[in-house]
């Protein structure tokens, strides 16, 4: 399952969607909103996505992971909208027959998602806001 949602992410639902009886491992990454960036207090984050392209780019990443690590199941959910510190922004869950591949696949998926999937985050500080990574 792959979803972009403006609702709080139900982690157990994401894990269940990735779980398979053929698997001996389920590995989950949960990305949360940090309350500071380089010492500056973060009040909130705002995420936006180019939704259809974001879904298809996540599908490409998943297909690569299926080829490379023989995933038995997967699930990715990414939040959009306004999020407060501590809230869950993204959940990646994969299942594989053995644990080693589950760690590698999960890391690959979140690392690549951050590089290629058209989702943007704006950080709001006490004295202004900034699109993350936009400028040098």
């Amino acid at each position: 399952m792959i979803e972009i949602t403006n609702q709080p992410i139900d982690v157990q639902k994401i894990i269940s969607a990735a779980s398979r009886h053929e698997a001996g491992a389920v590995n989950t990454f949960i990305g949360t909103v940090r309350n500071n960036t380089l010492g500056n207090k973060v009040i909130k984050l705002e995420y936006e996505a180019y939704e259809p392209m974001a879904i298809s780019e996540i599908e490409k990443i998943i297909n690569q992971a299926i080829d490379q690590w023989k995933l038995t199941g997967f699930s990715v959910s990414h939040r959009v909208g306004v999020l407060l510190p501590g809230e869950i922004a993204v959940v990646v869950a994969v299942s594989t027959p053995h644990r080693k591949n589950s760690f590698a696949a999960c890391q690959f998926i979140i690392d690549t998602l951050k590089q290629t999937v058209p989702i943007w985050k704006r950080e709001f500080f006490e004295n202004g806001n900034e699109w993350v990574s936009a400028h040098p």
């Binding site: 990305g31 995420y47 996505a49 180019y50 392209m53 974001a54 990414h78 922004a89 993204v90 979140i110 998602l113 951050k114 590089q115 290629t116 999937v117 058209p118 989702i119 943007w120 985050k121 699109w131 993350v132 990574s133 936009a134």
Partner: peptide, 10 residues
Amino acid sequence: IALIPPVSGG
């Protein structure tokens, strides 16, 4: 057509 500035999901 869409402009894709530096992405910052996750």
